[in-house]
Simulated assay, not measured.
Amino acid sequence: MLLWINGPFGGGKTQTAYELRRRLPGSVVCDPEHAGFGLRRMLPPELRGDFQDLASWRQGVVEVLDLALTGQDGVVIVPMTVTDPDCFAQTVGRLRELGHDVRHFTLLAQRETVLRRLRERGLGFLVPRPLRRTSVPRRDSWAVERLDHCLERLREPEFAEHLWTDGSTVPKTADRIAVLAGLTLRPNREGAPRTRLRQIRVALRHIRFD
Results as ranks from 00 to 15, higher is better:
Phe159Val: 13
Phe159Cys: 12
Phe159Asp: 10
Phe159Leu: 04
Phe159His: 10
Phe159Trp: 12
Phe159Glu: 04
Ala160Pro: 06
Ala160Leu: 04
Ala160Met: 08
Ala160Phe: 06
Glu161Ala: 15
Glu161Trp: 14
Glu161Lys: 15
Glu161Leu: 15
His162Arg: 14
His162Tyr: 08
His162Asn: 05
His162Glu: 02
Leu163Cys: 05
Leu163Glu: 01
Leu163Val: 13
Leu163Arg: 07
Leu163Met: 13
Leu163Asn: 07
Trp164Glu: 13
Trp164Tyr: 15
Thr165Glu: 01
Thr165Phe: 02
Thr165Asp: 06
Asp166Cys: 09
Asp166Thr: 05
Gly167Ser: 11
Gly167Ile: 02
Ser168Met: 14
Ser168Arg: 12
Ser168Thr: 11
Ser168His: 03
Thr169Met: 04
Thr169Val: 07
Thr169Tyr: 02
Thr169Trp: 00
Val170Gly: 07
Val170Arg: 15
Val170Cys: 07
Val170His: 11
Val170Asn: 09
Pro171Phe: 04
Pro171Gln: 10
Lys172Ile: 06
Lys172Cys: 04
Lys172Met: 05
Thr173Tyr: 07
Thr173Gly: 07
Thr173Ser: 07
Ala174Asp: 02
Ala174Gly: 12
Ala174Phe: 00
Asp175Gln: 15
Asp175Glu: 13
Arg176Cys: 03
Arg176Phe: 05
Arg176Lys: 10
Arg176Thr: 14
Arg176Ala: 14
Ile177Leu: 08
Ile177Val: 13
Ile177Lys: 03
Ile177Arg: 03
Ile177Thr: 04
Ile177Ser: 03
Ala178Trp: 04
Ala178Gly: 11
Ala178Gln: 08
Ala178Ile: 05
Ala178Asp: 07
Ala178Ser: 11
Val179Leu: 14
Val179Cys: 00
Val179Arg: 15
Val179Pro: 03
Leu180Ala: 15
Leu180Asn: 03
Leu180Phe: 00
Leu180Ser: 13
Ala181Pro: 12
Ala181His: 10
Gly182Trp: 13
Gly182Arg: 13
Gly182Pro: 15
Gly182Leu: 08
Gly182Cys: 09
Gly182Tyr: 08
Gly182His: 11
Leu183His: 11
Thr184Tyr: 01
Thr184Gly: 01
Thr184Ser: 13
Thr184Glu: 15
Thr184Arg: 12
Leu185Asn: 03
Leu185Trp: 01
Leu185Lys: 14
Arg186Cys: 05
Arg186Phe: 02
Arg186Thr: 01
Arg186Pro: 00
Pro187Asn: 04
Pro187Lys: 08
Pro187Leu: 00
Asn188Asp: 15
Asn188His: 14
Arg189Met: 00
Arg189His: 07
Arg189Gly: 01
Arg189Asp: 10
Arg189Trp: 01
Arg189Phe: 03
Glu190Gly: 09
